[in-house]
Structures are given as C-alpha cells and as structure tokens.
Design a protein around this nucleic acid. Structure first.
Lengths: 126, 126
DNA sequence: AGCGATTTTGACAATCGTTCTCGATAAGCC
DNA sequence: GGCTTATCGAGAACGATTGTCAAAATCGCT
C-alpha cells in the first residue's frame, strides 16, 4: 500500500514547476532553498517511484546523470532537449517505433526497446 | 604528441577480440586474467582516447555504465544490441538522421546530436 | 479522537564507476 | 647512451546513487 506524504507531494510539485529535465540533486537543492527540510534520499525515492508509475519521464544525460521531468502526455514518446537550458519538447515518432521494430526483426532480434533522444540548442539559447 | 605503448596496443587488441560492447572494468579484468599487469586507470584512458579518435564506439548502458566496442565502419552509425550477450549489429539509418535534423529544425533547435540505440534479445539468446 | 501496525523518512555509511594525483617509468629523439 | 616529456599505476578522491536503521508519520479501524 502506498502512502501520501507531504514529501512526495513536494517532489511532484517541484517537478511540474519546472520546464525541462532536472536531476535529483538539483531538485533537492531547489526544495531545500525553498525552505523544505526534505532529505536527499527521499527525493531519489520519490522520483524513481514517479517514474515507475508513469507520472514522470526519465532519461540519462550525456554525463550519466539521471534526469527527470513531469510527464505531460502519458504513453511512449521521445524528447528534444536543449543542452543549454534543459527545456524540453515532447515528440511523437511513430516512424521511429516502426523503424526500430522492423530493424530488430530483420536481424532476428526480439522484444526491442529503444533509446531515442535528440539534444540540441534551442532558439532562446543560441 | 602521442606515444605507442604496449598498454594501448593491449587495450586495442582486447577490444577488437570481443564481439560486443564491453565496459572498461570488464576489459581490465580480462586483460589481468590474461596475465597483463595493466592498470585500471590506463584502461579507462586508453578507451576514451580510442573513442575520441574514432577507433572505438561508445554508448551508455541502461545502468549508466560506459561501454566500448571496436569500431568496424567508421563514421556515424547506430547499434542493435543484444541485452543478454552484448552481441552488436551496426545499423545505418539515414532516415533517422534526416528525421532528427528535421524535427530539431521544426522546433527552432540548432546543432542537433542524437542518441539512437535499440536493445533487444538476439536469436541465439531467446 | 485514539491506537496500533506498518510505511516512510532522513542522516549517514556504503557502493560503484570514473577521474585525479603524483612519483616512477619508459618512448621517442638527439 | 642520455634527455625530455608523455604515460603509467596505485591509491586517494569524487560524484551520483542506494542501503541501513532508528525515529516519526500515515492509514485503517474503533
């Protein structure tokens, strides 16, 4: 059974207050400087719960950090991420899904999962 | 100036002796059990040099580890990776390149880089 | 509202991959 | 053979993340 604590709520809200992807540490720092005494481990736990429930989206940055974002459209989609400010656009790409499935099948591979993300610099930052 | 040491050669050879992606640690262990007294830091250095020169390909596993592979076809390409045995197929995908460029441009983003990899289970492992 | 069982929290230690430090070693050049 | 300088390697340092465990908080029930 899952309980509702103010901590989880705080994480959920701090996350949706942001425009792009954030790391757990950043989010923790933000919460702390907003006056919340929340612990770092709790932020990590809350974020991976949210990601597991599909309420948040996660990806790895090029440096290997895990980044999270409040999920707008549920279901499978990909991202176009500004590598300067972190602003994110969700993109649908049925063509990619098909391509991945076809490519895997063509080589005798089963049960394909794919990682497709585009990092670029957005108009505001260039 | 760049020097040729037996350590770099050993890493290069150990890498091309493998069929799929390997982590720096795995490669180090392999070299050690083959009798080489090479150091871990050296393996890391050699691998990132190789990747920088385009002689090796690198990607991040789902767990955030950096994996390397001897590069067969130079130039830009993507991978289909068996998530059980690590066997890898290099795939060309001009369609993806175009799609990424078009998508970025459509949202006003510049200088797009993309991460496109497909993880699945190969015929031998399923 | 009060109680009790059970989750969740948070400070801290532990882990894991990777990078840094720095004295020792060895390539390449004369 | 020497000299200069890049490279090596052992261990410390690091940063992100996860585990530990006692204390605190939540939910269901009365």
């Amino acid at each position: 059974m899952k309980r509702n604590t103010w901590q989880r709520t705080a994480v959920r809200e701090a996350l949706s207050a942001r425009d792009g992807f954030v790391s757990a540490q950043e989010l923790h720092t933000a919460l702390r400087s907003a006056g919340s005494p929340i612990g770092l481990a709790t932020v990590y736990r809350a974020l991976s719960d949210l990601a597991g429930e599909g309420d948040a989206d996660s990806l790895q940055s090029a440096e290997g950090e895990n980044l999270y974002r409040a999920c707008v459209s549920p279901g499978h989609h990909h991202h176009l991420i500004c590598r300067v400010c972190g602003r994110t656009v969700e993109i649908e790409a049925d063509a990619i899904e098909e391509w991945a499935a076809r490519t895997a099948a063509a080589h005798g591979f089963r049960d394909p999962q794919h990682v497709v993300d585009v990092f670029a610099v957005c108009d505001r930052c260039s």
